[in-house]
Design a binder for these strands. Structure first.
Lengths: 112, 112
DNA sequence: GACACGTATCGACGATCATCGTTACGATAT
DNA sequence: ATATCGTAACGATGATCGTCGATACGTGTC
């Protein structure tokens, strides 16, 4: 494929493209939600006012404790969840700032 | 892990949990955006008023024609992009309805 | 028809991922 | 200290994914 052949059919590259690291960061955020189990976790947290015990996700998701812990870590590493230790139990809640960042990401002005 | 041990630390499962197929659908939508190249594609389309030739993504992303076609198909299969054939060129544009659905997905009432 | 060119598909490779059993860590209680 | 229990981390396995070269499919042109 020769580059010159492309130029006669397409407009030149226009305005602001997302930088590589910005696209990476956005993709990382979406990747954190690219699993049904993690979608359910966030959904369950969104229906609660206070933090939720880790043990509660095990029957809710129908997955092993190891797998649930794995998903909770992925969401926490992505910054979407906050972890809080209460005695020997771990409680998780939504990070409001991350959720707001996510919402602003998908706000596409074109549709205005 | 015995179920009885969980009950004395956690509130019972509360209100509306996402159904399995709903969580799957949401995850599929997020998975379509869980790659920097596809984020860039959507971003480029969001900055344009009209459809964009497939060939334009090749220099913009720095990927092979085969890889770009692969990503465009993933986004189209997810319903985020619309494909239109103009002569021997393929033009792509954002599906407004899918974008709106995505925006409504991340709207979490708790933060209101 | 034959040719050129843009695009999609195929096959393959390496990398990442989801899942689980098992084990290790931490905190509480006896 | 010892035991108990919730949670995280380790190791393994099967599946999915991103990338590319090569090839096939369409569309327009001569």
């Amino acid at each position: 494929m020769k580059r010159l052949d492309l130029l006669d059919c397409c407009a030149p590259l226009g305005a602001a493209l997302l930088a590589d690291d910005e696209a990476d960061a956005d993709a990382r955020l979406f990747k954190a939600l690219a699993d049904p189990a993690r979608v359910k976790i966030v959904n369950l947290l969104a229906t609660r006012d206070d933090a939720v015990c880790a043990c509660e996700f095990i029957p809710a998701l129908g997955l092993t404790q190891a797998t649930v812990s794995h998903h909770l870590k992925k969401l926490t590493d992505a910054g979407l969840l906050e972890r809080e230790q209460r005695g020997k139990w771990a409680y998780f809640s939504l990070d409001a700032e991350a959720v707001a960042r996510l919402a602003s990401l998908v706000r596409i002005p074109e549709v205005v």
